[in-house]
Amino acid sequence: MEVFYEVPFLAVLEKRKDLLPENPSNPPESVLKAASTHLRSILYGKSRPKPVHPSVFFTEANLVAFSPSSFLWERFARHYALLAVPAFERREEILLRHYPPSEVLSLKEFLSVQRPFPELKLYHLEVSGGKVYLGRRAPLFQASLLYRDILRWISERVRNIVVSGSLDDLRETAQRVLAPPSGRKRGYPHIQRLLNVTGLPDGRKRVLFYWLIPYWVTVEGKTPEEVLELANEWISRQGGAKIYSSWILSEAENVRSKGIKPWSVRKVEQIDPELVKLLRGMGAL
C-alpha cells in the first residue's frame, strides 16, 4: 500500500469543471476516467503536484480521501472514495463520520474534537452565537480528524511502530513501513550471486552484515532463527568462519526492528572498496 500526501487529481478536475454534473454524487464516466488516468499517472508515474491542502491518499484498494478547497470537490472526492475503495472495511465509518456535511460545529463539539489538530485554534475561526464556522479551514480540520484515525489504523496493524507527528511523518512512515520494498520488484541479482558463492576467503561477516541478513529479514521476511540457520549454512559453504550466533541473531533483530534494506553495491564500494574488489574478482558481484 502506498500513501500520498497530495491532492492528486484535483487539478484535472478543476480544468474539466464544465463536465462535472450538478449532482456530484453521480459524476459521468468521462470525468471519472479522466480523474483515474491522472491519478494513475501520479501513483505509478513521476510527477506529483505540490500539496495544496494537507490531504491523505491511500491506494491499492484502500482509502482515497483528500481535502479539496470547496465543498463540491469534497463531495465528489467522497463519492469517488466510496466507488474506488470497496475493499476498505472502515471507509464509510471514517469518511462519513469525519467529513460532516456541515461546516458549522457547536462550540462544545469543536472543543471536544479539536485535540488531533491543536494548531487550529478557536480564534483562527469565525465564532458567533455558540457556533464555530470552519469556513476555509474546514478541509484542514476535517483532514486532521481523518489523519488521526489513519494513524491509529496504521498503528493497530503494524507492530513495533509508533506513528505520530505531522502528515509528512505519516507519509514517510507509511511509505517506509507499508510500501513493499522497491527492491522486491527489481530483485537483487547481486545478492543471488552472493548466496551462491562458495569459498569466500575474506569478508564473510561483512557480506552478511551489508547484504545477506538485511535481504533475508527485510526482503524475504525470515525470522532471526531462520536467518541463523541460513547464515550457518552459508558460512559452512565458505569453508567455515568464527562468527558468533549471538551476533547473527542480534543483527537480524536489529534489521527487523529498523526495516533495514540490503545495501547497494555502490554504497558499500564507497566505504569498503577492498571487499567489493575481492567479490568482483571472484565473479560474485
Partner: peptide, 18 residues
Amino acid sequence: ARIELVEYVTGQAIEPQY
C-alpha cells in the same frame, strides 16, 4: 478546552496565517 476559551477571549495567541 478551558484554557483555550481564556486564550480566545484574551486574543493574545492570534496567528494571522490561519
